[in-house]
Design a binder for these strands. Structure first.
Lengths: 333, 333
DNA sequence: CTGTTAGCGCATTCAG
DNA sequence: CTGAATGCGCTAACAG
């Protein structure tokens, strides 16, 4: 347990004062001679400045708190990846917390992170509630939400409503009439409500004989798979999963039951997970630029940290990816 | 920019001294009366103790640095997930960095993290080199490596060699003779060398007429796909991918070329990615308990932090998962 | 260009 | 049980 070497040790060894060393460290005015003496003193002592002492003075930590719903999620991974790039470029680090897809945990993590000396907080949220707004009142640091929206906060997200509409248009134009929308809890506004509403809006309006039945599942592959029987009980010609995971779970169910896709029923998802290209048949989906979303969130956080104003954005790039899992409906009588 | 409220403010408002407040905060001796006065003072001021000041005194940060190869990787996500659970339980947080699958970056991140006031460091490594060992010499904090091994460090990993052997046995028993092993760079000891060596050892030894050709690809799906033509040029009856991603990439290539699996050629992977169950046909693989690995790494880090000794472990649970992508070889003349 | 002097906010002796 | 005093290691005026 060797004593930690401090800036003082370096100073005495180099025969200068603490402040001179500090200046050396922080690009201040230094004569070449002393600079080199200090350099070698640091070398021999193996000095490394104390992170906490420094931060106690300077007031900023170069730390951004990030809350993700899960670690092992495709979407989260992509968003984080985009965030990582932007943070790295700016010399920031991530302090990570997981909400386990729970609003309660999310709030708890927000509170905890706030007290950890971070400069800003980014929450990949599972839904922005009144409790969030209330909590934000005694936040003295910038907060950005990702993936969900609320008029009173700064957020960045994909346009789930538009995505739903695009999907509605796609399925409608293929002539499908009996559709099951396999979605998630409406406590998730973006995925649970917006995608569904967008879909129904375009698909149903003035579409004679069209019906869309809602079946609720969880977010994971498995729970979608489990809902397979219920879904099929409605004899749909198309099944729209609210996420690619759901679409894939359904696909698996159908495959095991020997129900052929897309001949007997079309299946789609949302998200653009690259693994969705590997299923059999490959899943038609709407691909979002999650990485871009992450980058955008961080870049705007940096702006906020810089005192600039930022405006929320909910129309991150997306793209319909039509693959083998859909075809024109055969509307039997 | 309202002044930050400090422990002093609370003290004066409550009519006690700073130290009493500090004691209140840290479970010291306090009279009930003062305790409640302090409680309400904290309430009204909205006091929150300064993270950095606290850490400057107490010397520990409850922060564990973690380096992952990528954010958007299945394996990394699972390991992180396991780590997250264990850290949470112990009240630790993760300071995250990405190595981008590069040894150079990995070293750089290790250095950076070391100077960030973390209590310990866990590196999901892409390969432990001499530079790592050298760097470790002036590390004054516990370091654990995950996924790779080296006699001079503490590490936790799955038994890649054994996994290779198991796969070798599996393929051999199915009667395959002409095999292509689609692997990765040998700079990755675990995945690039151990899995391959284990496979060859069991598959080739005394296996009359057996041959295994090595084709190098990257870690990602796409580069495996790109290697498809080269792989097939050897006319294998079985293709063993060093990871599930590689297996899936190959599968995709074959599917697009109309080469049927497993009728014409068997394909396998390593890892147990859950998406590998969704491919067509579902991929035979060896599943590792990555989440358990992550948990184990953190639990042992906590031990080290506690001054206990820990021993490296390289035999994390694994399990062969035989799915539709393999069948008995038809060894035509 | 450089040394001296003050704290940053908190935890922790040490006397009461 | 409590308050006063001290210092963690560093940066930032302030005078030279």
């Amino acid at each position: 347990m060797e004593r930690k070497v401090t800036i003082q040790d370096v100073a005495t060894l180099a025969g200068v004062s603490k402040s001179t060393v500090s200046r050396y460290l922080n690009a201040g005015y230094i004569s070449d001679e002393k600079a080199s003496r200090i350099r070698s003193a640091i070398q021999t002592t193996g000095f490394r400045s104390n992170f906490f002492a420094r931060r106690l003075k300077t007031r900023d930590s170069k730390l951004i708190g990030i809350i993700v719903p899960r670690f092992d999620s495709y979407t989260g991974g992509r968003v984080l990846s985009g965030m990582g790039k932007a943070m790295e470029k700016a010399g920031y680090q991530a302090l990570l917390q997981v909400s386990h897809l729970s609003s309660r945990y999310e709030l708890e993590r927000m509170r905890r992170l706030r007290d950890q000396g971070i400069d800003g907080l980014i929450v990949i949220s599972v839904g922005i509630t009144e409790d969030h707004i209330k909590l934000l009142e005694d936040f003295d640091l910038p907060v950005i939400f990702v993936g969900q929206q609320h008029p009173e906060v700064c957020y960045f997200k994909v346009d789930d409503y538009a995505a739903g509409r695009v999907m509605g248009k796609t399925i409608r134009e293929l002539g499908h009439k009996r559709v099951v929308f396999a979605g998630v809890t409406s406590s998730d506004r973006a995925v649970g409500i917006e995608r569904r509403d967008g879909f129904e809006e375009v698909f149903s309006r003035g579409n004679r004989g069209a019906s869309v039945t809602f079946v609720e599942t969880g977010f994971d592959f498995q729970s979608a798979y489990n809902a397979g029987a219920e879904i099929m009980s409605y004899c749909p010609t198309a099944i729209v999963g609210a996420t690619d995971n759901i679409g894939l779970g359904v696909l698996r169910y159908l495959h095991e039951r020997g129900i052929s896709v897309p001949e007997e029923v079309s299946v789609t998802g949302f998200g653009g997970y690259d693994v969705a290209a590997l299923s059999y048949p490959p899943l038609t989906t709407i691909a979002f630029d999650y990485e871009g979303l992450g980058t955008m969130a961080v870049e705007n956080m940096l702006k906020m940290l810089d005192g600039e104003d930022v405006v929320s954005k909910d129309d991150v790039l997306m793209q319909v990816v039509v693959r083998g899992s859909v075809r024109k409906a055969i509307n039997r009588k």
